[in-house]
Structures are given as structure tokens and as C-alpha cells.
């Protein structure tokens, strides 16, 4: 547990000093939402388009963030020192996952405000009801990318590998997340999109369990 706290503390402190991940994630979200507003030529108050735009921004910003977090670990062989330390592999995975989840959540709050702003929606209870959907989405995405970015970081020519690996696996979570977001923005109560939340929860559990169990295989050396 203490190694988990130490690694997480290290990642958060690094972020507070440099702010690399959160700044990149936030600016990228802004950029993607702007591009989508032009590309879709969004009519105002279209919650259907807004839900899709929000998730596209989350996926691409999340991919960039995960790449940055893991590649920095592999640069200068930092990961080898982490592996040489007595820290449990599961603790390393959990710490990287929580750090990445926090950065994604910060970026999501920004893109939520931008979405309301760009798509001319109202600030009301519907936005609050989105919170569990977005947090579950970020949790699943962070647990998947933490595992897969560790694979990408070992391959020199693999800069584009992470989206190829992540997006197909994330599709069920994406479908249920977008559907739940649309339902929440349309003002439905939780019961109205409970089945989508269940699928999202199942994806989260699957990605978490898979990441936790398989991370050791990804980082260990022959």
C-alpha cells in the first residue's frame, strides 16, 4: 500500500510542478471540441451531438495523456528502477492508473463546461447526473490505457499503436457511455439508462481485472 501511495505521490507531484499531462489533455479537449463543432456544424441544444463530441474528446485526450505518462516512465529507464524496487507490480499498475484517472477527470470537467458552452446547453441537474457516467468511463479508459500504453512504450516505432489497440477493445464502453450520456442530457432519471450503466460497469471491472492481472506480464523482462 505504501509503495502505491509513494508512486502516486511522485506522479502527482511531477504533474503539479510541470502540469504536462493536464495541460495537454485540457488543450487537446478544447481543440477536439472546437473541431467537432465546425465539422458537425452543430445546431444549438443538440444533446445527441454533444454526447458524442464529449466522448470523442475524452478518448483522444485520454490516449495522448496515457502515452505521455507511460513514455516518460520508459525514458531514462525509470521503469527499470521501479521494477527493481520491492514495490508490487499490482501497486505500480494501481498507482499509474489512479494518476491517469485523476488527470482524465480534470480534463473531463473542462470539456464538460466547454460542451455546455459550445453546444449551448443549460447548466442544471442533468449535468450533475452525468458525473457517474463520465467517471465510470474515465475509470475504464484509464485502466485499459495504463496496461496498453505500457506495451506501446516498449516498441520504438509504436507511437500509433495505442489507439489501434485501445479503441476496438473500448467500443462496448464507448457505446454504453454515449448512450448513457445522451439519456442523461435528455433529462432521463438514472433508471432510464441503468442498463447502459451496468454494461459500463462490466467493462470497468473487466479492464481493471485484466490490467491488474496482466500488468506484470507486460513489464517483466526476459
Amino acid at each position: 500500500m505504501s509503495s502505491f501511495a509513494t508512486i502516486l505521490h511522485k506522479d502527482l507531484r511531477l504533474e503539479l510542478r510541470g502540469g504536462q499531462s493536464t495541460i495537454t489533455l485540457n488543450i487537446l479537449s478544447l481543440l477536439i471540441l472546437t473541431v467537432l463543432t465546425f465539422a458537425l456544424d452543430a445546431p444549438s441544444r443538440s444533446s445527441l451531438l454533444a454526447a458524442g463530441a464529449l466522448w470523442v474528446a475524452m478518448i483522444f485526450a485520454g490516449l495522448a495523456g496515457a502515452t505521455q505518462a507511460m513514455v516518460s516512465e520508459w525514458e531514462n529507464e525509470c521503469i527499470r528502477c521501479l521494477l527493481l524496487s520491492p514495490a508490487d507490480r499490482g501497486a505500480i499498475y494501481a498507482a499509474k492508473l489512479v494518476a491517469s484517472f485523476i488527470f482524465m477527470t480534470v480534463a473531463q470537467i473542462t470539456s464538460l463546461f466547454l460542451m455546455v458552452f459550445f453546444f449551448d446547453l443549460n447548466f442544471d441537474m442533468r449535468i450533475v447526473r452525468l458525473a457517474p457516467v463520465l467517471m465510470m468511463g474515465a475509470m475504464g479508459f484509464a485502466s485499459l490505457t495504463t496496461l496498453l500504453a505500457a506495451i506501446q512504450a516498449q516498441i520504438k516505432t509504436g507511437e500509433l499503436l495505442l489507439p489501434l489497440l485501445t479503441v476496438p477493445v473500448f467500443i462496448p464502453a464507448l457505446i454504453s457511455g454515449v448512450k448513457a450520456t445522451q439519456a442523461a442530457l435528455a433529462g432521463l432519471p438514472f433508471a432510464g439508462f441503468a442498463q447502459w450503466l451496468k454494461i459500463l460497469g462490466a467493462c470497468d471491472l473487466l479492464f481493471l481485472a485484466g490490467g491488474y492481472l496482466l500488468f506484470e506480464q507486460v513489464v517483466s523482462e526476459d
Binding site: I151, I171, P172, I199, C203
Partner: peptide, 28 residues
């Protein structure tokens, strides 16, 4: 890379475990 087999196995297992969830979500 010498570890290519392990990396590929991890991706194969995660993807295969994901297929039932894909089937359910896409059917809904």
C-alpha cells in the same frame, strides 16, 4: 523484441475477454 510473445498474449487475452461484452452492448 524478445518479449513480443508476452505482449501479444496480453492483448489477445484482453480482447477475447472483451468479446462477450461487445456482443451484448452491440446487440442492445
Amino acid at each position: 523484441l524478445p518479449q513480443v510473445g508476452r505482449l501479444a498474449a496480453v492483448v489477445g487475452i484482453v480482447a477475447a475477454a472483451d468479446i462477450p461484452v461487445i456482443v451484448i452492448s452491440v446487440r442492445l
